[in-house]
């Protein structure tokens, strides 16, 4: 199978797509942030601090989206042994961890004026913290082996176990937090949200998604170049 996963073709395709994706990400993030910071109205309860939401919520979505993407890539890698899927999983994990961290950091900043503390054991934030730990475990396992192939394989199994467990973890944390404290302030009840808040949110979310895509393409490309360098070194070693 690896003979057919032509890295040269992938690189050509990536080179063609990358400028558009990157430009799209910049434009969406620019417009989204402008709308979020200057156009959207302040919340009648939370005031200006509600604007953190336009970064916090899309990054939370992305943190979950990227983990699912890693799980899908892992399944493809395990079943069809497609090397590009391995690379996609490896490239995605640090980005997903970054989004999870951003969610936690903005959640903490938002929580300060709302709760008066930097950290509250709120259900959503706690789930995100666990997701962040899952990302760290995945990254550590990926890099724990001398043989990179083994790292790919082990991390892929872990990602699949993780994605099965995420709903269980989410449910158990919700169960636990409703037991111990009242509903959170960070509630976003989808349909009731005003359009003037929804649009900036969706545009920023799209920008984040494009940003992720651009970063993944770039990271896969650099992994391919590194692999080619190693192969050339090996060939040189054999020739001598």
């Amino acid at each position: 199978m690896h003979r057919f996963a032509n890295p040269a073709r992938f690189t050509r395709l990536a080179d063609r797509v990358l400028p558009f994706v990157a430009a799209g990400a910049l434009v969406c993030l620019g417009i989204g942030l402008y709308l979020a910071l200057f156009v959207a109205p302040p919340d009648y309860q939370q005031g200006e601090s509600v604007r953190i939401m336009y970064v916090h919520v899309p990054s939370a979505w992305m943190a979950m989206f990227v983990y699912v993407a890693i799980a899908v890539a892992s399944a493809v890698a395990l079943v069809w042994r497609h090397p590009l899927a391995d690379l996609a999983a490896k490239a995605s994990a640090p980005i997903g961890a970054g989004f999870a961290f951003l969610t936690l950091a903005t959640g903490s900043l938002w929580g300060r004026p709302m709760w008066g503390t930097w950290w509250e054991w709120d259900g959503r934030l706690t789930s995100m913290l666990i997701l962040f730990f899952l990302y760290l475990g995945h990254i550590a396992l990926m890099n724990a082996f001398e043989d990179q192939q083994r790292g790919y394989r082990a991390a892929a199994v872990l990602a699949l176990v993780g994605v099965i467990n995420i709903p269980i973890i989410k449910f158990s944390v919700d169960w636990w937090s409703t037991l111990h404290q009242p509903a959170s302030v960070l509630r976003l009840d989808g349909p009731t949200i005003h359009p003037s808040m929804l649009w900036p949110l969706l545009i920023t979310a799209l920008g984040f998604k494009l940003y992720y895509l651009a970063l993944v393409l770039l990271r896969i490309k650099s992994e391919l170049i590194a692999a080619r360098l190693r192969a050339l070194d090996l060939a040189k070693l054999k020739a001598t």
């Binding site: 475990g137 724990a144 872990l158 176990v161």
Partner: peptide
Amino acid sequence: VLIPLLVLPLYIPALIF
């Protein structure tokens, strides 16, 4: 050292229940 990092987050539901 790696095992706790992988396993502990997955232990949380059992702990909670």
